[in-house]
């Protein structure tokens, strides 16, 4: 599957997910903030994640008012913006990654940023930069028709989110409309590490699997190898955010190499935990 001709960005994403699942492995999708502390570092962090076995990466687009995010990612966004991070710079990073890495990238971005840029322009620039999809955590399904159309035309995924507070009928509709994969939020609340995952999570993922053909990745609160194994029993993979972004808290001078090694090691442990057999 992986060497099948890839025509649109979303096909690259789907091919990567399919190949990993056919091998029987749990998909590990790290989240990294674009531009914390700078775009060059983020590129090397993406490279380290790929080498450690990540299937895809989520590139967080810094936003000044991220209401879905906990303190770790919020602080990371603030650092990136204070360092002069721009949308132009993020697209540049995505282009560089698309040219030099094989792992697909999806951008996680607030609708505020997409709206200001203009929907068609943003999606066009994202596709041109080689991004394979968008995750827009503050865009509920009722408001998403125009962006969904733009993404479909550009051939990129619009990944939807379901949460523990989503009623079943609504979750089924969201699952059916999600492209690329479905993002299953494990807990009600903001992003951040959690000691334990809710008991009902496995039942919910099993039910969701019946509502959609796209892979299901579980995010929010995932940081440890045993969680990858636990979630991997029912879901296609995990998204790991805050726990990795923590490694970006100290990156000045010779701490850069240490941070890259920490990211590589952390991703590697999660990937190993999710390996078949």
């Amino acid at each position: 599957m992986a060497d099948t001709a890839v025509d649109t960005p979303i096909m690259k994403l789907t091919a990567a997910l399919t190949a990993r699942r056919e091998a029987g492995d749990v998909v590990v999708a790290p989240f990294l903030t674009a531009g914390d502390p700078d775009m060059d570092f983020t590129f090397h962090a993406l490279e380290a994640a790929q080498q450690a076995g990540a299937t895809l990466c989520e590139l967080g687009v810094p936003y000044s008012d991220p209401i879905a995010d906990g303190p770790v990612i919020q602080a990371s966004y603030t650092r990136a913006l204070n360092a002069g991070g721009t949308l132009e710079g993020m697209f540049g990073l995505a282009r560089r990654a698309a040219e030099q890495l094989t792992m697909p990238l999806v951008a996680m971005t607030s609708y505020s940023i997409i709206f200001r840029r203009g929907l068609d322009r943003f999606v066009g620039e994202a596709a041109a930069a080689g991004l394979t999809g968008l995750i827009v955590p503050d865009l509920p399904i009722e408001e998403s028709a125009l962006l969904a159309k733009a993404c479909q035309q550009a051939g990129i995924a619009l990944v939807r989110l379901v949460t523990p507070t989503t009623p079943p009928e609504r979750a089924a509709r969201i699952a059916a409309e999600s492209t690329g994969f479905l993002y299953c939020v494990s807990v009600a609340g903001v992003t951040g590490e959690r000691v334990s995952l809710p008991q009902q999570l496995k039942d919910r993922v099993r039910w969701l699997k019946e509502q959609t053909d796209v892979p299901i990745l579980v995010g929010f609160g995932i940081s440890r190898p045993e969680q990858v194994r636990e979630v991997g029993d029912v879901a296609d993979g995990v998204i790991v955010g805050s726990a990795l972004v923590r490694h970006l808290e100290a990156t000045s001078g010779d701490q850069r190499q240490t941070a890259l090694e920490a990211i590589s090691r952390h991703v590697g442990e999660l990937v190993a935990a999710g390996r078949a057999g």
Partner: peptide
């Protein structure tokens, strides 16, 4: 019914809040 005042308004929030 969707909370639109002309072009404005609406509901741009994380899915966690939709049900509430």
């Amino acid at each position: 019914p969707l909370g639109r005042f002309g072009d404005y308004g609406g509901r741009y929030v994380p899915e966690t809040l939709s049900a509430a």
